[in-house]
Every structure is written in structure tokens, then in C-alpha cells.
Design a protein around this nucleic acid. Structure first.
Length: 804
DNA sequence: GTAGGGTTAG
């Protein structure tokens, strides 16, 4: 071409020249990198030689520009055509559709007169709506084309069928379309049957319908179709995979004569998603042995299998294998493989290595950014997460969800809610997961009213059947002290998973309803929901709170024996907590002796807590010493130890601990309690003077104190020594924050309403005693959530049975 | 000139 003549063309040769150009343009393969420069040269040659491309040559040129992502040149050519034909229009429309510019495509569609439209043109526009996830528009257009008398063909049906999977009433839609297919005579065309199978499969995976009957319909089509192609097999296999029927999926897969990469990949990812990691890896091994070429999807699925199973070494081998391959460069640029590698390293605890992979990636997308953000959030590396979030070039719904729920998980409820509002201000519509994050933030803050408002919004937006939001609501209501609301929600949830059960069991446990918690656990087993490690954590806590030692011990044994879940340090810590609270110190010590690992902070904390309750000073001091070695800057240990000495009157030792604390510069976290009144949170500190209405609180407390003493309440002065490091009154009792908050609640909340108070630290023993008398004097329920659990005071008793 | 399956972030 470069040397071709550029003199004007003889009109007699025009046909030969046109043929020559057409042939040249035929050489441009659609997606080859050379096609664009070649087309440019042919185009330039036409211009200099005075040849004016028209008809199919012009269309072909536009097509090459479109396919090589040079839409601007294509549009320039298109604009110069006085009356573009339907082929040129279809080409442009499809190009805009592919480059995700549906508005431009629609513009071409609307400006095309009806008399020149044809079925292909309609098909292209229907597909555009599908790519834009607008199923309704696609179906509406399909109806329109039929009204105008354009006969649908097999392309029409494949597109409109996939559109019907996108709409709410997809089941009805796909049945109607099935009839239309049969009438149109395309009912035996493989591509159309494939699309039908695909849509039935998608309907079946909806939680609202009976999946078996729809899978049955899909299977009938599969069994009765005259010709199957590659797509047919993978469609039915993924159908079974998606609906959780991996056995049938596997049987169909084994029935394939020539197993395709896509089918292998579908099986592997299906096993991964349903938690059958060893099956996934076995498939991978077989696939590798079969000699088939593994692709990007294969590696991504396998790496994700390793990540979710914590198989770091195997994953690293796969990584090394990828790096050793000849076409290594190709993989360096594979976004999804790199993203899967990030997840592998992160989930296996290699945070910095994961960040290195991210840093070295030649190209990154939102998945990469979101993965790193999730990693920082779940590793509790909040500062890094914050600055990473600010650095992000773009954000989507998931980004916001990750950071909001991450803040809540890290106890930063206020920041979570702030981000939730910021997200809305930026014009994003929160999905149910984002709501779940905001609701969890309310749970952290014990912001019941705010949580209720979010619940109401959720219902208004139609998210009330959402699993994640429902689970968050259970926890929120429970942590705000309204365990009845949590239970009610749990009973009316349309869908539940193990998280829902765990949340409800935990709720009952925290509120001291140990027996009910265990009963619910039994129901969970009857409902054939498999317990996980969290389930056992909550069960052991529930037993511990309610003093159900024997049950707790047997659940601990059943954990590995019956359910194959290996207890980790947290489980052992709860077992030890359970034993110590019941005063079974020798058993607890024995358990510690036989730990399969070096005991860490959780174990010693559990032991110390138990010793404190039972005044087992010797053992308590031992565990405190270990804790002071492991965590010298943590205030709680000093406080507990000092309180323990105070309990037994060892004042010198107490003073030593307090001196040690001072010398090491450890500050006591100030005790702080809050109560929500008329949608406003009122915070109190010890001996508070800052709250504007505090004088009324002290007056009422004085008045209540007299009545309480008449009933036998004796202030326990030894607890006055508990607030190490804070200014204390020299005589009498300093007034703890929880007392002020409770009394404020009694004063301000409507007559008879339950007072719900929240404290950052553990409730003080004297306050606990006082609230029992108080609940009797005022004849009202008082609920206090401290750092560990809930106390429901009613008529002189506490739900914890003085056992906390 | 038009369609349809498998991957990674909660």
C-alpha cells in the first residue's frame, strides 16, 4: 500500500479500484492491532486518489474504525453520509453499545426512520438495553418491533430472553417468551434454546421460587434439544452450580465428551463458591493433567479457592507456576489474576505482600483498589485504610460499603455513620449492604433511634427482605438493649443464614438468656444450618454468662468431635472463662496446660477475669503478670489487679500496682456512660459537672438513695477505690457515670419507659447493686450494657443473677 | 451490521 500510485483514477477503472479497496479492507481482522493503522493507510490512499468511498466500502471502513475503538473517526465518516443506510447505522449503534454509551446508541435508533429499519437493527438496540441492564426497555422494544410488523429471529430471542432475566417478574416474562419462541418456529434453534435454558436457570436461582421445578424445565429443554453446542453444556452446568446442585453439575460435566475450558472453570469456581475447596483443587489437578490450556479464569478461581481455605502454600505454588510460564508477560498484565493474588496474600495474613502486588500491577481497576481497602479495614489498619480511601481514583457502592461496615467492625460507629451520610451526599444510592454497615454503626453507638430510622428507610426502599440488613438489625436491636425487637425480627425474616442464627444466639446470650440461646442453637441444628466457629463462640459465651458449665464443656467437645471445627484461641479463652466463672480453677489451669499453642492475651484475660470474681488472688496475680508482659500499655490489667487487691484489703500491693501504672505512663480509659433521650445522646463522666442538668440528677439521686437505704441498700465503699488515676472524693463514694446516666434517664424518659444506659467499661459492683434497689423503688426496668454484656434490672433483681 | 457460557472486591 505504501508504494501504491496516488494519481487520479480513471473513471473506467472505478469498479476495479473499488474491488481493490474492498479487498484491502477485508485484510483488517476485527481486533488485530494492525487493523487500525492499515485502515488508516487505505483511507488516506482513497483521499489522495480522489476515490469517494460509498456503500459497503464505506460501511466496512466505519466498521474497522469502530472495532478498533476509534469511534471518533467512525462518527466523522458517518456524519458525512447524506442518508446512511441501515447497515451503517447498525454498525455505529453497536459500536456505541459496546463502548457503553447507550445514549448515543439510542440517539441513532430514534433518528432512524421506520421505513428503513429491519430486524437486525432492532436486535442491536435490544442488545444495547441488555448491556445497560435495562431489561424493561429491551422487552418494551421487542413488543414495539412486533407491533410494527418486524419478524423476530433467533438473534432477537437470545437477546430478549437474556433481558427477561433482568426484570422482577422474570418468571412470567420468560414463560411468555417461551410461547413466542415456539410460535416463531425458532424453538429448535440451538442458540435460542440455550438462551431459554439460561433464563430458566437464572429464575431458579432466585430465592423466592421453587428452584427444582425451574431447573426441571431447563433440564427438559436440555434433554430434548436436537443439537447441543459448547454453550449448551456450560449453560446447564453453571445452572446446577448456581443452584447449589454440584452433584448433578458434576454428572453433566462428566457426560461431556470434550470438556471445554469454560466448563472446567465453571466447575472449579462452583466448588469454590460453595465452600468445597478440596473438590475445586481436585478439578484443577485433573484439568491440568488433561492437557487443556489453563486460562485467566482458571487461575483466578483456583487462587480464590486457596484464599478462602487459607491454603497459602498451595496458592503460592500456583503463583510460582504462573510466573514460570512462557507467556509470563501476559499474566503480569492479567488484572483478574493479580486481583486474585492480592486476595490470596491478604486472606493468608500477608498484608504487606498483598500491597506489594498492588504496587507492582501495571494496570489496576476498582476490584484491586477495593480489595486493598477491605484488607486494611479487616486488618484493623484504619489509618492506612483512611488514606487509601482518599487516594482512590474512583469509588463505587462497594467501596463505600467496605469502609462504612469496616468502621463499624472496628468500633468506629460515628465515623461509619458520617461516611454513610457523605456517600448519600455524593449522590449514591445506598444498597442493602451499605445500610447494613450504617446499622452496625448504630449498634456500636447504641443509637437505637437512629437505628430505628434506618430500619424504616430500609422498609420504604423495599430492602426489608435483605439478609445482610436483617442480620445487622438483629445485632443492632440486641446491642441497643431491645432483645425482644431482635427476636421479633429474627422470627419474621424471610431468609436466614448462619449469620442470622449466630446473631440471635449471641443476642440471647448477651442478655443472660442462656437456656434460650442453647434452645435456639438446637433449633438451628434441626433446621440443618451448619454451625461455624462464630456459632461456637456465641454458644460458649452464652453458657458462660448463664453459668451453664456442663453444657458449655460438652459443646466445646462437640465442636471438633461432631462438626470438625478446630477450636482456636478465642474458643479456648471462652472455655477457660466458663470454667473460672464457675470457680473450677484447677480444670481451667489444666486446660491451659494442655493448650495446643502458647497461651496469649485472650487466655490470660479470661483467667484473670474469673480470678477477680472469686477473689483467687494468687492465680489472678500470675495471669496479670503474664498480661503485663504481653501488653504493658493496656490499662485494664492494672485496674483489675488493683481492684483485686482492694477486694482483699491488700492496700500496699494496690498502691504498688498504681505506681507501676503511673511509672509506665499508662492512662486509665475514663469511664463514660450515655443514654438516649428524645433522639439525643447524653454523655456522663464520673462525678460529672459538665452536663447542663447534672444538678437535678444529683438531687434525684439523693432522694432515691434514701428510699433505697430504707429497703436495705448499703453503699459499698470499697468500690470507691476502683477509679484508679481519676480524682476521687476523699470521703464517701465518687459517683460513677452509669449512676448519673441511669438517674438522668429516669428523670427524662416518659413515665414507665425502660431506661437503657450504655457504658464503655465494665459496670461497677456498687452501681450494679444500687440499680437493683433502684428498679424496685421506681418500679421501672433498667437496662445497662457494659463492655461485656447486658444487665436487665427489674423489681430488685438482675438478669445476670449477679454472675458476670 | 445483530446474540448467548466461566474470574477477582463485601
Amino acid at each position: 500500500m505504501k508504494n501504491a500510485a496516488t494519481k487520479p483514477i480513471n473513471p473506467c477503472d472505478i469498479r476495479a479500484v473499488a474491488n481493490f479497496y474492498a479487498a484491502q479492507l477485508q485484510l483488517c481482522c476485527p481486533h488485530s492491532p494492525t487493523s487500525y493503522p492499515h485502515a488508516r493507510r487505505v483511507h488516506a490512499h482513497m483521499t489522495t486518489s480522489g476515490f469517494k468511498p460509498r456503500g459497503h466500502i464505506l460501511n466496512r471502513l466505519i466498521d474497522v474504525y469502530c472495532k478498533s475503538s476509534h469511534l471518533v473517526f467512525a462518527q466523522q465518516l458517518f456524519d458525512k453520509i447524506p442518508q446512511p443506510d441501515i447497515v451503517a447505522r447498525t454498525t455505529m449503534l453497536t459500536a456505541y453499545s459496546a463502548s457503553r454509551k447507550p445514549d448515543m446508541a439510542l440517539e441513532i435508533f430514534n433518528t432512524t426512520p421506520l421505513r428503513i429499519r429491519d430486524t437486525v437493527f432492532y436486535n442491536a438496540m435490544i442488545t444495547t438495553h441488555c448491556h445497560n441492564d435495562d431489561g424493561h426497555a429491551a422487552i418494551e422494544l421487542f413488543r414495539g418491533m412486533r407491533r410494527e410488523g418486524f419478524p423476530p429471529d433467533n438473534f432477537t430471542f437470545t437477546s430478549v430472553l437474556s433481558a427477561s432475566a433482568l426484570v422482577a417478574d422474570r418468571e412470567t416474562q420468560c414463560q411468555q417468551l417461551h410461547c413466542a419462541v415456539v410460535k416463531s418456529g425458532t424453538g429448535l434453534v440451538t442458540s435460542v434454546v440455550n438462551a431459554l435454558i439460561s433464563v430458566y436457570v437464572k429464575c431458579a436461582s432466585s430465592p423466592l421460587v421453587s428452584s427444582s421445578s425451574l431447573m426441571g424445565a431447563a433440564r427438559k429443554l436440555f434433554d430434548e434439544m436436537p443439537v447441543r453446542d459448547e454453550l449448551t453444556w456450560t449453560t446447564i452446568i453453571t445452572g446446577y452450580v448456581r443452584n447449589g446442585d454440584l452433584d448433578t453439575a458434576c454428572r453433566v460435566f462428566e457426560g461431556m465428551e470434550e470438556k471445554l475450558v469454560v466448563a472446567w472453570n465453571a466447575m472449579i469456581s462452583g466448588y469454590v463458591h460453595h465452600g468445597f475447596v478440596s473438590e475445586a483443587l481436585e478439578m484443577f489437578r485433573r484439568m491440568n493433567l488433561s492437557g487443556i490450556k489453563l486460562d485467566e479464569f482458571t487461575y483466578t478461581s483456583v487462587l480464590s479457592a486457596c484464599a478462602s481455605a487459607g491454603l497459602f502454600l498451595f496458592g503460592k505454588q500456583v503463583h510460582a507456576y504462573i510466573l514460570r510460564m512462557e507467556d509470563k508477560l501476559l499474566w503480569d498484565f492479567s488484572l483478574s489474576v493479580n486481583n486474585a493474588l492480592i486476595t490470596l496474600y491478604w486472606k493468608c495474613g500477608k498484608v504487606d505482600e498483598a500491597r506489594m502486588i498492588f504496587n507492582n500491577m501495571p494496570v489496576r481497576d476498582l476490584v484491586s483498589w477495593n480489595a486493598i481497602l477491605s484488607m486494611y479495614m479487616s486488618a484493623g489498619r484504619i489509618n492506612e485504610a483512611r488514606s487509601f480511601f482518599i487516594e482512590m481514583p474512583e469509588r463505587n457502592l462497594l467501596t463505600w460499603t467496605v469502609i462504612i461496615s469496616g468502621m463499624a467492625q472496628n468500633g468506629l460507629g460515628e465515623e461509619g455513620l458520617k461516611l454513610f451520610n457523605q456517600m448519600k451526599l455524593e449522590g449514591l444510592k445506598p444498597c442493602d449492604y451499605a445500610f447494613a454497615g450504617a446499622i452496625s454503626s448504630c449498634a456500636v453507638l447504641a443509637a437505637l433511634e437512629h437505628g430505628r430510622q434506618l430500619h424504616a428507610q430500609l422498609v420504604r426502599l423495599g430492602f426489608d427482605s435483605s439478609l445482610s440488613a436483617g442480620n445487622a438489625l438483629i445485632t443492632m436491636y440486641a446491642r441497643c438493649g431491645v432483645v425482644e425487637a431482635a427476636h421479633c425480627l429474627f422470627l419474621t425474616m424471610p431468609f436466614m443464614d448462619s449469620v442470622s442464627w449466630n446473631a440471635m444466639i449471641a443476642a440471647l446470650g448477651q442478655h443472660g438468656h442462656g437456656a434460650q440461646a442453647l434452645e435456639l442453637f438446637e433449633q438451628m441444628l434441626e433446621a440443618e444450618i451448619l454451625p461455624d466457629r462464630i456459632t461456637f463462640l456465641t454458644i460458649l459465651s452464652a453458657c458462660s454468662h448463664a453459668g451453664l458449665v456442663n453444657q458449655g464443656r460438652s459443646y466445646f467437645d462437640a465442636m471438633y468431635g461432631l462438626y470438625g471445627i478446630r477450636p482456636d484461641e478465642d474458643h479456648y479463652a471462652r472455655l477457660i472463662d466458663l470454667l473460672c466463672r464457675a470457680g473450677k480453677f484447677s480444670e481451667a489451669e489444666d486446660a491451659i496446660q494442655r493448650l495446643p499453642f502458647e497461651p496469649g492475651v485472650p487466655i490470660w484475660e479470661a483467667l484473670l477475669g474469673g480470678c477477680r470474681i472469686h477473689g483467687n488472688v494468687d492465680l489472678g496475680v500470675q495471669s496479670a503478670e503474664r498480661l503485663l508482659e504481653l501488653r504493658p500499655q493496656h490499662d485494664g490489667t492494672y485496674i483489675l489487679l488493683s481492684n483485686m487487691y482492694a477486694d482483699v484489703g491488700r492496700w500496699d500491693d494496690m498502691a504498688k500496682v498504681r505506681k507501676l501504672m503511673r511509672d509506665r505512663g499508662v492512662k486509665k480509659e475514663p469511664g463514660c456512660s450515655w443514654v438516649e433521650v428524645e433522639n439525643k445522646v447524653h454523655v456522663f463522666l464520673v462525678d460529672d459537672t459538665a452536663h447542663p442538668e447534672v444538678q437535678a440528677v444529683y438531687n434525684y439521686l439523693e432522694e432515691l438513695g434514701m428510699k433505697m437505704r430504707e429497703l436495705g441498700y448499703v453503699p459499698d465503699t470499697k468500690y470507691a477505690l476502683h477509679d484508679v488515676g481519676s480524682d476521687q472524693k476523699q470521703h464517701g463514694l465518687s459517683t460513677h457515670s452509669e449512676k448519673l446516666a441511669v438517674v438522668f434517664g429516669l428523670l427524662k424518659l416518659p413515665r414507665g419507659a425502660t431506661v437503657r444506659v450504655f457504658k464503655n467499661l465494665r459496670i461497677c459492683g456498687d452501681c450494679h447493686n444500687a440499680f437493683k434497689f433502684m428498679s424496685k423503688v421506681v418500679e421501672r426496668d433498667i437496662v445497662v450494657r457494659d463492655g461485656k454484656r447486658f444487665h436487665h434490672f427489674r423489681n430488685g433483681e438482675c438478669s445476670c443473677g449477679n454472675y458476670w
